[in-house]
């Protein structure tokens, strides 16, 4: 595939799926303007570096990864800004919640209270209906990590999910069982 064709199909992919990317960005940054910024940055980065893209098949995951990375980068910057601001303005205290930095609790009531990497897995798997393999590609981790994160995320979301554990186990196979065993061992 020529570079020109690759570039064109990347552009096509971005234009066709822009709503999906915006939703993903908004899901993380929870702010309309910021989400637009994130998507714009992601497009710029992708188009600048399209030559690094190996094949058209890898494109969807590659671009999604850029969107997610941009969102997380935005959150990190935001966190810094808030932290700095808090030092001289107490009013802002509690106005921002960064799940990744929350104290660890076993049971959380909301997805947004999960650590970021778990949120990503939940978002991609349940909302975007991506397969675990796709999630592994997007997050640039291996399949087993995705499985264990998903399992751990479900577990953290409360006891009521326990009923579903068995279902998950059968769905995602032995490695998840292994992950479960490991987490039990850890506990």
């Amino acid at each position: 595939m020529s570079k020109k064709a690759l570039y064109d199909s990347l552009v096509k992919h971005i234009v066709e799926n822009q709503n999906q990317f915006y939703r993903a960005a908004f899901y993380y940054v929870k702010n309309r303007e910021a989400a637009l910024d994130v998507v714009q940055n992601a497009i710029c980065k992708a188009l600048e570096n399209y030559e690094k893209l190996q094949s058209e098949e890898a494109m969807a995951s590659w671009f999604y990864r850029i969107v997610i990375n941009e969102s997380l980068m935005y959150l990190r910057k935001e966190k810094k800004y808030i932290a700095w601001d808090e030092s001289d303005n107490d009013l802002l205290e509690g106005s921002y919640e960064e799940p990744a930095y929350e104290p660890k609790i076993e049971v959380v009531s909301k997805i947004s209270e999960l650590p970021t990497d778990m949120q990503i897995v939940i978002q991609l798997h349940f909302f975007e209906e991506k397969t675990l393999k796709e999630i592994a590609e997007i997050t640039d981790t291996n399949l087993n990590t995705v499985k264990s994160r998903l399992y751990a995320a479900c577990k953290k979301l409360g006891k009521e999910l326990e009923k579903e554990d068995e279902e998950l186990l059968t769905r995602y196979g032995k490695s998840l069982k292994k992950a479960e065993r490991e987490s039990r061992n850890e506990a």
Binding site: V15, Y22, R23, F26, I43, L47, F127
Partner: peptide
């Protein structure tokens, strides 16, 4: 899924491209 898509998105994407 109900996250509202702003009207500017389309324009922004096109201009960026």
């Amino acid at each position: 899924e109900e996250i509202e898509i702003p009207d500017e998105l389309l324009l922004m994407v096109r201009q960026t491209v």
